[in-house]
Design a protein around this nucleic acid. Structure first.
Ligand code: FES
Ligand code: FES
Lengths: 145, 145
DNA sequence: TATAAATAGGACAAAAATGTCCTTTATTAA
DNA sequence: TTAATAAAGGACATTTTTGTCCTATTTATA
């Protein structure tokens, strides 16, 4: 609805990796896919994107896998993941599908849409991976069901 | 992003029909598609759905076309169009793609997501076609660009 | 009543998103 | 140095969404 499937998997994967990195564990694609209940090969592609965008860090070879350093858990915000995977149409797009959102020639929904989107934007910009992972750690939230 | 293409076209079409109905004009699919800059045959399909859901009224034959009675302009809210075309996954879906949104077993984003979604929901439920059409009438907003 | 104009609807086509498979590359450890 | 393990990445397959085309139905009017 709001995010693409790829983006949903990307966020779930990043949160899982963050959680495990807090324990010093590096995790493989197959473990991630298992734990977030996502298609493994597709998840691998998404992790490649996150790696290229320096959101996660990957290590090849035996004992390799994905990890996120403690610093990144705070600096990486949801907005960065969404941007890496879905681009910024979430910010620049018009709610009614006009070429782009444009306050000079607004669609009928513009004012109300901009309001909602700004809430969303603020939320994404202010939510860190660490924040999402710690809820999991305490067992209050879930990455699959 | 937020709505499907079909839904965007549906809303734009409904607003245009409402605007013309205010002047007592019944409009054809081809005129609608022209005025909202949408693919004509695809728009026709969407209008069929809106007709079946009693959001617009269609009349066959010469002098036929689409119209919306004055009463419906007030009673038809954006939420009804979105529901008719995109279903209610916008309300029931989980932001991170878990089977459904569930406060008992929430995803890490649940609380923040529910907040945003509730704003969106309120906006959709409280915005009528009439409200959107009148902005157009006054020439402040646009359905194409 | 015949014709033409308009929507309804089924079948099909194209494009985009999602998902899979297989080979290559890097790296560890025996 | 070889074998095994893990990510990278290219090519392909499937599914969903978007879009088109053609025929049937309804209806106004000449
Ligand atoms: S112009 Fe449509 S949302 Fe801004
Ligand atoms: S459970 Fe994910 S948004 Fe509610």
């Amino acid at each position: 609805m709001m995010f693409s499937k790829a983006c949903e998997y990307g966020i779930r994967a990043a949160v899982y990796i963050a959680l495990q990195s807090l324990d010093g564990r590096r995790v493989s694609v197959s473990e991630i896919a298992e734990e977030i209940d996502s298609p493994i090969a597709f998840t691998a592609k998404i992790l490649q994107q996150l790696n290229r965008n320096n959101i996660v860090h990957s290590v090849k070879g035996p004992t390799g896998g994905f990890e996120i350093d403690r610093e990144n858990m705070d600096t990486v915000k949801l907005s960065m993941i969404v941007k890496a995977i879905d681009g910024d149409k979430i910010y620049t797009g018009c709610g009614l599908g006009l070429k782009e959102c444009n306050a000079q020639k607004p669609c009928p929904l513009h004012d109300k849409f901009v309001d909602i989107r700004s809430n969303l934007r603020t939320m994404l910009i202010s939510t860190s991976l660490f924040e999402l992972a710690t809820g999991l750690e305490v067992g209050l939230t879930y990455l699959k069901r």
